[in-house]
Amino acid sequence: MKSTPIFESAGHRWHIVHDQDESRVIDANVYALQYGDSAMLMDPGGFEVFPSVLSALIDVMPMASIKTALVSHQDPDIASSLPLWNSCVPDMTWYVPSLWVGFIRHFGALEAHIEGIPEEGMRLSLDGLPLEIIPAHFLHASANVHLYDPTAKIYFSGDVGAALLEPGHSPLVGDDADGGRAFDLHIKHAEYFHRRWMPSMHAKQEWCERVSKLAIDFLCPQHGAIYSGQNVSRFINWFSELPVGDWRVKPET
């Protein structure tokens, strides 16, 4: 896995850890936000990819700085590494949607310090950096959250925007000023995932309306590549028009 910087400004950094080497499990991105002496992980990944994720992260930050993790929902590709992280960094605080706290503990580490996120989301501070946990329920899990960093204008979108790409892919969707050509090529890899995994038209529409009002430079999904610049609004518009919640849809070939 590679650790690539997305944003950097005076001790405030975002990194993506992407392009995993383990092909037997679904490819998943891990994001790390560093501010001052603290770091927060977004969807820290599964049990199998844990050695790759941690060794890639240690290239760019000390392990002692990792204080917090956000778990957007209960899937194993996101959170089954929890007991491993907990054994290495026992003081970590885990922010998890309240609805999933009892389920997440099934991954192990009953003693882990888990904070439930209320249904309406919450505000958070990482060493003084203001962050917003934004509800994204039913996108795709019934309790689901995203994270917005208004200073960096980065929106961690969990499974929204996800695409299943070939190994070796770039961390970004592509040139955002090419009239949408890179976006059009990319979004084909995202369509089936969104139609099949997102169950609620109503939840999707509400999310699109809410997020389109935010200033976002990077929309960062948990699978695939990051939407930057104009590709962010292209994605929100595309998603807004997409019919979802139909299990009969077929995967692209």
């Binding site: 049990f47 844990f50 050695p51 790759s52 941690l54 060794s55 890639a56 240690i58 290239d59 007991p83 491993l84 054994s87 290495c88 192990g108």
Partner: peptide, 21 residues
Amino acid sequence: LMRPLIYAQMEIVRDQQTWLT
């Protein structure tokens, strides 16, 4: 050699968790 070392170390952490389970 640092990254392979940390990777190998994390494999052991994973083994320990598997063992515990």
